[in-house]
Design a protein around this nucleic acid. Sequence first.
DNA 1: TCAAAAGTGTTCTAGATACACCCATGT
DNA 2: ACATGGGTGTATCTAGAACACTTTTGA
Lengths: 229, 229
Amino acid sequence: MDLSSYKSNQKILVAVDCIIFGFDGTQLKALLIKRGFEPEKGKWSLMGGFVGKNENADEAAARVLAQLTGLDNIYMEQLYAFTDVDRDPAGRVISIAYFALINIEDYSEQLQHDHEAKWFPLSKIPPLIFDHKKMVAKARRLLRQKVADHPIGFELLPEKFTLPQLQSLYEAIYETPLDKRNFAKKILSLKVLNKLNEKEKESSRKGAFYYVFDSVKYDKLQQNGVRFI
Amino acid sequence: MDLSSYKSNQKILVAVDCIIFGFDGTQLKALLIKRGFEPEKGKWSLMGGFVGKNENADEAAARVLAQLTGLDNIYMEQLYAFTDVDRDPAGRVISIAYFALINIEDYSEQLQHDHEAKWFPLSKIPPLIFDHKKMVAKARRLLRQKVADHPIGFELLPEKFTLPQLQSLYEAIYETPLDKRNFAKKILSLKVLNKLNEKEKESSRKGAFYYVFDSVKYDKLQQNGVRFI
DNA sequence: TCAAAAGTGTTCTAGATACACCCATGT
DNA sequence: ACATGGGTGTATCTAGAACACTTTTGA
């Protein structure tokens, strides 16, 4: 804190913007909305909102996210505060960006229409307003980094998932093919997945066993430090 | 952004606080100041200040840091935005925390007195105001993480440093002893240090060769991804 | 000559990578 | 019967960990 009194300092609008990632089985996607008001009305944008009087930024981000997706209890994390003086042409607004991971299937079509929202593959993000492109890029870097040693990839999948699904997810995140033998070996060696006695039969004749993430086993491991990939 | 107009939303004071790390050859330390104004006057605190009308948070943090240390061009990075509603009892203030690494020798005694500032070993941080303790803890986690794959440890040392000095630094950061043979092997295998034909003779009879970090060599390596430790 | 820190090499182990075939099933 | 994707094991290589003695030199 500096020596000047609180009163003489300038107050600033504080917003949150959410980079919402989803995975459709093949591609990693981000949820964008068509901005409904000026400035930049009609342009693609991240979902955002202002931090209110009686909430912190985490709460504001959760509120904004619930508004758009109808979902609660989403995995979410603060990414970075974007504070450039002219980032918003309409006035001095800083934005605290959050990144969120959701299971794309949980997201209702209805809300998609209500908000003119759309999922875009990361390779096909349209031009975005303000500094939102930077936000997406930063979120993507954090996702890669995080997913290597935290069990957050599962947030992007249904509760029950198959190893091939999980592998596709990692391949999408890292944009690189992985060897399925080595992948299975590595993931299963962590012993944080429980195999179910049930197969997913949509995508192959043979069917692939479902697994679920076991957070209790993970927590026990956690002490040391885990590498997921 | 949300549908409500900009005007109806609440503006908030935005501060920056700096966690300043230094290394004295043995211990990792943080620079704290005795707060000179209310609330909490006289308590230990991080160095901070408000974000002004015509600067972004990075600039504000650099300004604050220069005020306290007289130093420019310091390694600095945004850490996290702390936004809890009641974090500052005097009003709604959010704080964007920065962490900075300085060479402790560059820091003048004079300024230390001017600001009633003092270096504290991380194991002996006194009670701090507001949420500053959380800030320090978070900064420390980031330092450990960062230093593993970015060449920032050097920021804490003089330009010329010896391998034993560098090793002590890593030992202080990770709070664990390291094997000097393995350490030297690993660090030198990166080939980003240049050995000088000159020895540091203070701390031993034999003397230890000085090295300097070669950022050009590092940049070439950088493409791939490096692990420092 | 001895105390104190610097410097240096080898072996072992574990994890990462590369790689190819059989299995189950629906059509 | 065959096409499709699922599942599995082994050999090799590389990086990290463990470990002890010699060198230099000022006092």
